[in-house]
Amino acid sequence: MSDAPGSDVLVDQRGDATWITLNRPDRRNAYDPVMAEAVVEALEGSTRSRAVVITGVPGSFCAGGALTGLAEPDVTAMRGLYRGSLRMFDAIRTHPRPVIAAVNGPAAGGGNELVIACDLAVAAESATFGQTGPRVGSAPVTGATNVLGVQIGEKRAKEMAFLCRRYSAAQALELGLVNRVVPDDQLVAAVDELVEEISRLSPRYLEIAKVSSNVWWNAARDSFTTGLGMLVQAIGSPDMAEGAQAFLDKRRPQFPPPDA
């Protein structure tokens, strides 16, 4: 790896691909604004590669945004987290090369939206997928409530975004969220094969194809910022406080009843 072992994000040049590895096992590779910005910087520095791979250190792919402190949230910090998420996802979508998610463990919440943002995804058999928003006092507005409907169908996307169920890698493949599922010990080899296939293609015309494929992402972009604005207005709400505290306490949340 090209970064120090203590870095939140490790960057490694592996043949024709840049591998970006999320490195916060203590919080299941959940990202904060600093970590999200490190991913953006790694993406911006990898345009000479044929492909980019995003994965996590063993044990988890990505648990989404870090929930520490959400029971008593700081508005400025939360704005930074929301904006950092969107900036990271946009950097994936606007990167000129194919970005591959190598899903080696749970992809939850913003981690699942990270998979949605990537162009291609290969999953280990032990990987799991799902949104967490309404369960922890949030909502998945940067992919799972809009672009995911294009990828797996509206009803399935709403099921995933609303109900916060967990899906196996095999189920994710059936839904169309990932391209391939392989045994855990074959994940790196399977991604290397995909990179090799990409390396035989024209980078120029792959970039044109990628830019053209972003039509649905671009169409949903306004809904991302609108949704994030609504999340900002809900910072500190009883639902957020209860959802975050219940998550940290590892118990079922007791949300207040809906307003009349």
Score class of each variant (00 low, 15 high):
residue 138 S to R: 01
residue 191 V to Y: 02
residue 99 V to W: 01
residue 52 V to C: 07
residue 209 A to C: 07
residue 76 T to G: 08
residue 210 K to Y: 03
residue 57 V to E: 10
residue 81 L to Y: 11
residue 157 A to G: 09
residue 8 D to M: 12
residue 70 L to H: 08
residue 90 D to C: 06
residue 188 V to E: 13
residue 6 G to I: 01
residue 176 G to D: 03
residue 69 G to F: 06
residue 34 V to M: 10
residue 113 E to L: 01
residue 22 L to V: 05
residue 193 E to V: 01
residue 70 L to I: 04
residue 229 G to M: 13
residue 113 E to K: 02
residue 140 P to S: 07
residue 216 W to V: 12
residue 92 I to K: 00
residue 258 P to V: 14
residue 44 E to S: 12
residue 144 A to T: 10
residue 17 A to K: 07
residue 59 G to M: 07
residue 100 I to G: 02
residue 216 W to T: 15
residue 205 Y to W: 13
residue 198 I to G: 00
residue 56 G to S: 04
residue 97 R to N: 07
residue 90 D to A: 14
residue 43 L to S: 10
residue 182 V to M: 12
residue 84 G to H: 11
residue 93 R to S: 05
residue 45 G to C: 04
residue 207 E to G: 06
residue 37 E to H: 13
residue 247 F to G: 02
residue 59 G to I: 10
residue 169 A to Y: 00
residue 78 M to D: 04
residue 122 V to L: 03
residue 94 T to C: 03
residue 201 L to M: 04
residue 114 L to F: 07
residue 242 E to K: 06
residue 138 S to L: 03
residue 217 W to A: 04
residue 2 S to M: 11
residue 140 P to H: 03
residue 58 P to G: 11
residue 20 I to C: 04
residue 184 D to C: 05
residue 7 S to F: 00
residue 132 T to F: 09
residue 67 L to A: 08
residue 164 C to N: 15
residue 233 Q to S: 10
residue 66 A to M: 06
residue 229 G to Q: 07
residue 47 T to I: 13
residue 192 D to R: 05
residue 226 T to A: 13
residue 203 P to R: 00
residue 134 P to S: 08
residue 31 Y to V: 15
residue 229 G to L: 09
residue 192 D to P: 01
residue 197 E to F: 05
residue 217 W to H: 09
residue 107 A to N: 05
residue 211 V to T: 14
residue 155 K to F: 14
residue 28 R to E: 12
residue 168 S to W: 01
residue 188 V to G: 02
residue 19 W to H: 08
residue 86 L to C: 12
residue 180 R to C: 09
residue 152 I to T: 11
residue 236 G to D: 04
residue 209 A to N: 07
residue 250 K to S: 13
residue 61 F to T: 05
residue 220 A to F: 08
residue 253 P to V: 09
residue 48 R to Q: 15
residue 22 L to N: 02
residue 28 R to W: 03
residue 185 D to I: 09
residue 76 T to A: 15
residue 69 G to C: 08
residue 39 V to E: 00
residue 88 M to W: 08
residue 250 K to D: 14
residue 253 P to A: 07
residue 44 E to Y: 08
residue 146 N to F: 01
residue 124 A to S: 15
residue 164 C to P: 05
residue 67 L to Q: 15
residue 186 Q to C: 11
residue 160 M to N: 13
residue 127 A to N: 03
residue 39 V to S: 10
residue 17 A to V: 06
residue 36 A to Q: 12
residue 69 G to E: 04
residue 18 T to W: 05
residue 170 A to V: 10
residue 108 A to Y: 02
residue 53 V to C: 08
residue 115 V to D: 00
residue 187 L to W: 02
residue 150 V to N: 12
residue 245 Q to H: 12
residue 120 L to I: 14
residue 98 P to E: 09
residue 10 L to I: 13
residue 134 P to T: 11
residue 87 R to N: 13
residue 133 G to Q: 03
residue 225 T to V: 14
residue 14 R to L: 11
residue 8 D to H: 05
residue 183 P to H: 11
residue 203 P to D: 02
residue 45 G to L: 01
